[in-house]
Write a protein that binds this DNA or RNA. Structure first.
Lengths: 145, 145
DNA sequence: CTGTGTGCAAACTCTTTGCATAAGT
DNA sequence: ACTTATGCAAAGAGTTTGCACACAG
């Protein structure tokens, strides 16, 4: 398993093929969760939130399976875990390089539009290490008037 | 309470004065924890780690008090909470603007040396919001040879 | 059939809370 | 004295795990 980018080569592919391409057996639950995750543009969800959506969509799936599935999708490169300090783990359906706004207090995550944000002046890395990912979180707070 | 930067005006001030300046009553536990935190340069610690150090230093303090104290110090602007995805909360003794390396797998946090890293191309913020802080976490992984 | 995936409930980790006791000023 | 802080143990939230049952190929 691990990052198989094939799922990205055909955006119109259905959830079953997408899963097979990632080496995951397309079960009812995985297909339903994939549909919820990938048919609405880029999203940031917690396991709890996705489970809630599944319940509303009348998809019978347990919270434990949602956790399992999210991690399987993450291992397959279909999701990314966000580096946001909070008691909850956010999974991002947009695995490309991009950054986030985080609204303090409200625990809301938003994509930063366009890829025109850059990080400059990176120092040399510790010996034997390479960059896995650079996370930029712009924490916003409500302006007090 | 809340951010009182007075504690920074005199780096040689002892922990008691530092606490008073922040509006915190200088108790045994707070003084001991402040000593552990601020007498060794910039650090990133979890509550568990600081508690462990206190135990080793023969400072009798409960984990609950360590948590309380860390949050009090944070409210007073003496510490900063790091935006690193992980089950643990990291508290940073360096409250100035600076960024971090995070060593995946090892859960180690390191300061990025010098302030020569910058973020460019920030888009306009959502209505009524202002930037509280920009966190950049450069996630590193061991280079596979 | 045979191997995987799922559901459930219990376990686990980190963190917070309530309340009686102790300590600071 | 009066107020605030601490310790303990229990509660809480989010997440993971173990194992019997169900499903996909």
């Amino acid at each position: 398993m691990s990052s198989n980018p094939a799922y990205q080569t055909c955006p119109t592919r259905d959830a079953g093929d997408r899963l097979r391409a990632a080496g995951l057996r397309p079960t009812r639950q995985r297909i339903a969760l994939a549909d919820l995750l990938f048919s609405k543009g880029d999203r940031h969800l917690t396991a709890e939130e996705l489970h809630e959506e599944a319940v509303i969509a009348k998809v019978p799936v347990s919270l434990a399976t949602v956790y399992n599935t999210l991690h399987q999708f993450t291992d397959a490169g279909m999701l990314r875990v966000l580096a946001i300090e909070s008691s909850k783990t956010y999974f991002d359906t947009n695995v490309s390089d991009h950054q986030h706004f985080f609204l303090e207090g409200e625990n809301v995550v938003m994509d930063i539009p366009h890829g025109d944000m850059t990080v400059n002046g990176l120092p040399k890395l510790p010996e034997g290490m390479e960059i896995a990912h650079i996370d930029v979180v712009v924490r916003l707070r409500r302006k007090r008037i």
